[in-house]
Every structure is written in structure tokens, then in C-alpha cells.
């Protein structure tokens, strides 16, 4: 039994042992940020050069799990900084009382929809979009209305707004366009929905396996396929009404012992040194100026004419009611 315990400990404690430096900045984030191909390793390296400190990432599954983790740990949290919430979760995150104003001016930040806040600072964004397979779909919908009213035989995979942020994004998108007619729109769209998956990965997996010609994803998704795989097969459909935006944000934690360091990180986050890393690692649009031009593929992405973004407070206040509305519209026989 002891040998077993030992091997267990060995298996899990292979974390870098760079504890010699004095200060450690603990950043809570989501898993794909810290993956070996994600922005995390480069961001860590870049910031450590400037701060005489160690960056320690703690990652959970996604933005939603991040918020749950904070709600669970409350004042006992070890986080100095939280990176990876989005604007739809911002109001609920603030309501925990765990966050503190960043105390910075943010002229460098430029995101569509003009989100600006005294607690959270955006680091990247992406517009939700219907991504389609050009090999099986010649005439993709040109608007949300066309998506809703189009041929029910051409299916789309979407995500559940109860368990995923893109799912919630689509819910808010439809709400922004259709307002009180949203339930009727969902009843129509339902005919085209092949299935509703728990998260982005499952839906996107169905899409790339060729099971469904359309999937709810981001305007930036085609960039991955163009840059990393060299294929133009998957494209995003521009919608004439405009696109709902997902802005990812970071903020300082009140109970942190390294508040200045956290602030320093936020400044770094808005600088080109950080922003250069984002496009080809997180596959999102940088929220501030980069010093290097973006890869060509990014210039070929859909640029939404209009951006939808609801006030985080409005989202927080109505989310449950709108989800109930969605459930009813989607499950009526």
C-alpha cells in the first residue's frame, strides 16, 4: 500500500519545483489557456522576464467552472488574479464580492461593443458565428432569420445554454435579435437543430466528423483550420443582423497578497507582448494592439457589421427566465 501511495504522489507532484523565487502570482484560468499549445506557457515566460516572480496557473475546465470554483472557495481562494471569465458571467462574478477594482486606465483596450469596466479588463474576444462545411453546404444562411427559417433538412449542432458559454451566447444572440419573439424563433430553429450538446467540444466534434454541416462556434474558428491545418474547408457565415460577441476578461482578487503584482500583470496583459501571443494560441481576436501583424488568415475572417452585447446585469437578472423560456420552446412536442 505504501508503494502505491508513493507512486500516486509521484504521479501528481511532477509540477515544476521553481519555488525558490520570492513571489508567486497565482492565476486561475481555464484549461485550454494553459495547455502546452495554448497561450499560458508563453505568457508565463514573457511576464516572468519582467517581474522577478513566478507565475503559477491553476486551471479548471472552462469559464463557467472558474466562477463555480470561486463561489466555492470564497475568501479562502489562493487566486491573485482570475483570467478567463466572460462578460456574460461578469455580473455574477462581481456579486461574489471577491473582485477588486483594477485601478488602471485602459486606453489600449479596443473591443467591439465598447465594453469597459472598473473591475475587469478584456484580453481577447470573438464573435459567435455559425461555422459551416463548404463541402456539404453551398448556400449557408446569410442571416439569423435565414438560419431560423431555412431548410430543416440542413442541420446545425448547438450547445446547451445551461452548461456552456457558447450555448448561452446563442440564447442571448437570438434574444437580442428577436426580443419577445424569441420563443417562436426557437420553436422554428428547433426543426434544424440536430442535437444540443453539453459543451463546445462535443458539438464541434460532430461537425468535424461530418455528421452535421453547421455548428455554433466563433468567427475565429476558420483561422485555426487555415493556419494550423492549411485548409479552407470550414468557414463562418456572416449574418446581416450582426453577431453576438464573447469578450473574455481578467480581474484582481480582493484577498490576494500580491495585489501590485496582479496589477502589473494586467498592464502586461494589455501590452503587445501578451497580445501577440493570443491570435494563434487562443484562436481569438486580441483585445489591444499587437506589435506584429496577424497571420493572413485573420484578414479573411468574417468581420461582423454589427456587434450585440448585453449589459452583464441584464444577463444576470434574466438568465434563468430566458433559459426556462428556451427549455419550453425547445421541448414542446
Amino acid at each position: 500500500m505504501r508503494r502505491l501511495t508513493l507512486s500516486l504522489l509521484l504521479a501528481i507532484n511532477l509540477a515544476p519545483a521553481a519555488m525558490a523565487q520570492e513571489k508567486t502570482l497565482t492565476i486561475y484560468t481555464y484549461e485550454s489557456f494553459t495547455a502546452e499549445w495554448g497561450p499560458g506557457p508563453k505568457v508565463k515566460e514573457g511576464f516572468e522576464k519582467t517581474c522577478a516572480c513566478t507565475v503559477n496557473f491553476v486551471s479548471v475546465a472552462d469559464g463557467v467552472a472558474l466562477l463555480s470554483r470561486l463561489k466555492l472557495e470564497r475568501e479562502n481562494t489562493e487566486a491573485d488574479l482570475v483570467l478567463g471569465l466572460d462578460t456574460n458571467l461578469a455580473a455574477e462574478a462581481k456579486a461574489t464580492g471577491l473582485f477588486e477594482a483594477h485601478g488602471l486606465t485602459t486606453p489600449a483596450v479596443d473591443v467591439p461593443g465598447g465594453y469597459s469596466d472598473d473591475v475587469f479588463i478584456p484580453y481577447n474576444y470573438g464573435h459567435f458565428a455559425v461555422v459551416y462545411d463548404t463541402q456539404t453546404m453551398q448556400n449557408p444562411p446569410k442571416s439569423l432569420t435565414e438560419l431560423v427559417e431555412g431548410d430543416p433538412a440542413q442541420k446545425i449542432a448547438i450547445q446547451d445554454p445551461r452548461t456552456s458559454t457558447p450555448g448561452l451566447g446563442l440564447l442571448l444572440w437570438v434574444k437580442s435579435v428577436y426580443r419577445e419573439d424569441a420563443p417562436a424563433a426557437w420553436e422554428k430553429l428547433r426543426q434544424r437543430v440536430l442535437t444540443v450538446t453539453p459543451g463546445w467540444s462535443e458539438a464541434y466534434g460532430l461537425f468535424t466528423k461530418g455528421e452535421v454541416p453547421m455548428v455554433l462556434s466563433y468567427t475565429t474558428s476558420p483561422a485555426y483550420h487555415m493556419v494550423a491545418e492549411g485548409t479552407d474547408r470550414y468557414q463562418a457565415a456572416p449574418f446581416s443582423e450582426g453577431h453576438y460577441i464573447q469578450i473574455e476578461i481578467a480581474g484582481r482578487v480582493k484577498t490576494s497578497e500580491h495585489k501590485e503584482l496582479a496589477q502589473q500583470f494586467l498592464v502586461f496583459m494589455m501590452s503587445p507582448a501578451f497580445q501577440n501571443i493570443i491570435p494563434t494560441t487562443n484562436w481569438m481576436m486580441p483585445a489591444a494592439a499587437t506589435s506584429e501583424p496577424l497571420p493572413d488568415a485573420f484578414s479573411r475572417l468574417v468581420k461582423p457589421q454589427k456587434t450585440f452585447l448585453m449589459d452583464p446585469k441584464e444577463v444576470a437578472a434574466n438568465r434563468q427566465a430566458w433559459i426556462d423560456e428556451w427549455l419550453t420552446a425547445m421541448s414542446e412536442r
Binding site: 442535437t195 453539453p198 462535443e202 460532430l206 428556451w326
Partner: peptide, 9 residues
């Protein structure tokens, strides 16, 4: 259930 269920019904 979520992947093959087709929707919240």
C-alpha cells in the same frame, strides 16, 4: 443523453 438526445426534451 445530451449528445444523442437531440434537445432538452
Amino acid at each position: 443523453v445530451l449528445v444523442l438526445g437531440g434537445g432538452p426534451a
